[in-house]
Nucleic acid binder design. Structure first.
Length: 414
RNA sequence: GGACAGUUGGGUGAGCUGGCUGAAACCACAUCCCUGCUAAGGAUGCGUACGGGUAACUGUACCGAGGGUUCGAAUCCCUCACUGUCCGCCA
C-alpha cells in the first residue's frame, strides 16, 4: 500500500510517479478524495463518541448519588442514534478507501527508467560469453526427449496441461540445484527456512498478491488458504504484524519452495517445454531491512544471483526494468536473464525487487527506531528459479549427440 | 472429526459478581543515580493504530475475530478462528 498521507500532501508529485507505472490520474484523485472523506467522517464520529463516553461516565455517578437519570438517558439515547448513523458513513468510507487503495501499485523509484513495457527495459551488463556451437543447438524439450529427462505427457495426465514430471538424472539435477542454491545463499548470510506452501489470505494481501491478483492463484476449496505463488509470500510474512528491534535488522532469509501459478493471461505463451509451468521450484531470497540498509542489500542480492549463474557457467545479462514493466509491489527491479542457445534468446531466470515500505505497510512490519515505530523495507529475489536453470543447463551444456554435461560445481551434489 | 479447557500489552500473568482497568504485579527493555567489580541496589519511563496540537498534551479504537445486550463490556450472550489436553485417525 502506498502512503496516503504522502499522496494527499504531494499529490502532483505522487501522481507523476504513478503515471510512470500506468496508473491514471482520475483514480488517484478519487483515492485522495476518499481519504479526505474518511478523515472527516472519522472525526465527526469520534466527537460523538467522546460525548457518549462522557455521558456514560456521568451516568455511573448519578446512579451512585441516586440522582434522577431519566433526562440524561434521553440525551444519551438520542446521541446513540446519531452515532449509529455516523458509524455507517465512516464504515462505508473506510471500505471504499480500502477497495481502491489496495489496488494501487507501488511508487517506482525516481531512478527507474521510463517506459511502457519490456522493450524499454535497460540492459546494464552481460556476464560470460555465450558458447559457440559447432552444431545447431537443440531446444530443451528435444534434449529432454533424447535423455528421457522430462515426461510432459504424464505430468498432464496426473494434473493438467503445464504440469510435468522430471525423471532420473533430471530429477536428481533439480535436487542438486536446490541444494547448491541454498548453500550459496547461506554462505552469503541468509538463514535457511522451510515454510508452509499454503498461506492464508491475510498473508497474500500483505505481499500484494491479493486482492488484485486472485485469478493468478490456486485457492483451496472451502478454506482460507492459497498455494503460494512464490516463497516471497511466506518468507516476508514471517514477520507479519510484528515490531522488530533495530538490532535484529537486517534479516536475511532464504528458502526453497515449489511455486504455484495459474498463469491466467499467459495463454499461448511458452506452451511448449517447462519455461512456464503451473508448478515450479524456486529458491528465494528475502530481506527485511531498515530504509538505510535496503540499497546495499539490494545490490548484494543482485550480485549473489548473478554469481550463482557465473559459478554454473551460464551466460546471462542484467536488466533494469522500466516503469511500465515493474511488478505491482516493486519500487525497483533487476532481472537476470540467462542465455538459452536452443531458443537463441535471453530468458528471465531471476527477478530481484526492492518494495521499499510498500509491503511493510500492508503487512504491518515495523521496527523500533528509538521511540518511533518505522516501517521496514522488504526485498525479494530469486536465487534462482530451479526449473529454468535446469533448462539453461540442458541447452548450454548439450553435446552434439544430445547428451548433457553436468556443470563442475554441481558434481559434488549429484 | 468428538469432548473438555483456554485465547489479555515484548514475555509470564491478574482482572472476568459490567462503570473507579488501556488494563495490577513480575520479568524484559531504555535512561539516570549509586556502587565498585563481573554481579548487585535505587529512581523514572515503557502497548498499538488513527486523528487534533509547534509542544506539553489530547480525542477515538483495540484485552483472538466478528456480531449482540446495555447509558456503559476485557468482564454477559451468539458465531467463527486458533491453541492446549484426552479420544479417534495418520506420515
Amino acid at each position: 500500500m502506498i502512503d496516503l498521507k504522502y499522496l494527499q500532501k504531494n499529490f502532483d508529485e505522487a501522481s507523476a510517479k504513478l503515471i510512470k507505472k500506468g496508473v491514471n490520474k482520475e483514480i488517484l484523485e478519487n483515492l485522495k478524495e476518499l481519504f479526505a472523506t474518511l478523515k472527516s467522517a472519522n472525526s465527526t464520529l469520534e466527537e460523538a463518541k467522546a460525548e457518549q463516553n462522557k455521558m456514560s461516565k456521568l451516568f455511573g455517578e448519578y446512579m451512585r448519588e441516586k440522582k434522577d437519570i431519566t433526562q440524561l438517558k434521553e440525551k444519551v439515547n438520542a446521541n446513540k442514534e446519531e452515532i449509529v448513523a455516523l458509524q455507517a458513513t465512516a464504515r462505508e468510507a473506510q471500505e471504499a478507501l480500502e477497495r481502491v487503495s489496495l489496488a494501487i501499485p507501488n511508487f517506482p523509484d525516481d531512478s527507474v527508467p521510463e517506459g511502457a513495457n519490456e522493450e524499454d527495459n535497460v540492459e546494464l551488463k552481460k556476464v560470460l560469453e555465450p558458447r559457440k556451437f559447432e552444431f545447431e543447438p537443440k531446444e530443451h524439450w528435444e534434449l529432454a526427449q533424447i535423455n528421457g529427462w522430462i515426461d510432459f505427457e504424464r505430468g498432464v495426465k496426473l494434473a493438467k496441461s503445464r504440469f510435468s514430471v522430471l525423471r532420473g538424472e533430471a530429477a536428481r539435477l533439480e535436487r542438486a540445484l536446490i541444494n547448491f542454491f541454498l548453500d550459496v545463499n547461506r554462505q552469503r548470510g541468509f538463514e535457511e527456512v522451510c515454510v508452509p506452501f499454503l498461506n492464508n489470505s491475510a498473508m497474500l494481501q500483505g505481499t500484494g498478491q491479493l486482492p488484485k491478483f486472485e485469478d493468478d492463484l490456486f485457492k483451496i476449496d472451502g478454506e482460507d488458504l492459497y498455494l503460494i505463488p512464490t516463497a516471497e509470500v511466506p518468507l516476508t510474512n514471517l514477520y507479519h504484524d510484528e515490531i522488530l528491534t533495530q538490532k535484529e535488522l537486517p534479516i536475511l532469509l532464504t528458502g526453497y519452495t515449489p511455486c504455484f501459478r495459474k498463469e491466467a493471461g499467459s495463454a499461448g505463451r511458452d506452451t511448449r517445454g517447462m519455461i512456464r509451468q503451473h508448478q515450479f521450484d524456486k529458491v528465494e531470497m528475502v530481506a527485511i531491512a531498515t530504509p538505510q540498509q535496503s540499497e546495499d542489500i539490494f545490490n548484494m542480492m543482485v550480485e549473489n544471483a548473478s554469481d550463482i549463474l557465473t559459478q554454473l557457467g551460464l551466460p546471462h545479462r542484467v536488466i533494469e526494468l522500466c516503469g511500465g514493466d515493474l511488478g505491482f509491489s516493486a519500487a525497483t527491479t533487476i532481472d537476470l536473464e540467462v542465455w538459452l542457445p536452443g531458443q537463441d534468446k535471453y530468458r528471465e531466470i531471476s527477478s530481484i525487487s526492492n518494495t521499499r515500505d510498500f509491503q511493510a505497510r500492508r503487512a504491518k512490519i515495523r521496527y523500533k527506531d528509538g521511540k518511533k515505530n518505522v516501517l521496514v523495507h522488504t526485498l525479494n529475489g530469486s536465487a534462482l528459479a530451479v526449473g529454468r536453470t535446469l533448462v539453461a543447463i540442458m541447452e548450454n551444456y548439450q553435446n552434439e549427440d544430445g547428451t548433457i554435461e553436468i556443470p563442475e560445481v554441481l558434481k559434488k551434489y549429484m
